[in-house]
Amino acid sequence: MFFGEPSGDGKRGPYAYTKLWNQAKKKAGLDDFRFHELRHEAVSRLVEAGLSDQEVAAISGHKSMQMLRRYTHLRAEDLVSKLDRIHIQ
């Protein structure tokens, strides 16, 4: 996913993003934050945007719905808002 430009031997090596990632975390005040947590956030926001489980799994690469659900963290305020829109008679 993070491969740089080819070097002199024509091979593409991975970017060394650790230093930049740590600088960005420090600047944002997120010292205890891992890059992997962005996947959780992305999956949750895609579900909230209305994409189906199958669509989100295709984007995120999850092979099972069980693992996809483990990564999905819905915001309580969004769920409450949806419930408020339901008119039960």
Rank of each mutant, 00 (worst) to 15 (best):
F35Q: 03
M1N: 08
L38F: 13
M1D: 12
G8W: 14
K25I: 03
K82R: 15
E41A: 03
I86A: 03
D32S: 06
E37W: 08
G29D: 07
R34H: 15
K19L: 10
A24M: 08
D53L: 05
Q54S: 08
I59Q: 05
H62G: 06
H87Q: 14
F35A: 09
L74Y: 00
V80R: 13
P6Y: 12
Q89D: 10
L38Y: 01
F3H: 09
E37G: 04
E55P: 00
L20P: 11
G8S: 11
S52D: 05
H87C: 06
R34C: 09
M65V: 12
Q54H: 09
H62L: 05
W21L: 06
A24T: 04
Q66Y: 12
D53A: 07
G50E: 14
D78E: 11
A24Q: 02
M67C: 04
A42M: 07
L68V: 00
T72N: 07
E55L: 04
Y71D: 14
D9C: 07
I86Q: 01
S52R: 02
D32T: 10
A76C: 08
L79M: 12
T72W: 03
E77A: 02
L20S: 14
R12Q: 05
L30E: 01
H36C: 14
R70D: 15
S81I: 02
G8E: 15
Y71V: 01
Y71F: 05
F3R: 09
R75C: 00
L74Q: 01
G10I: 03
L46S: 12
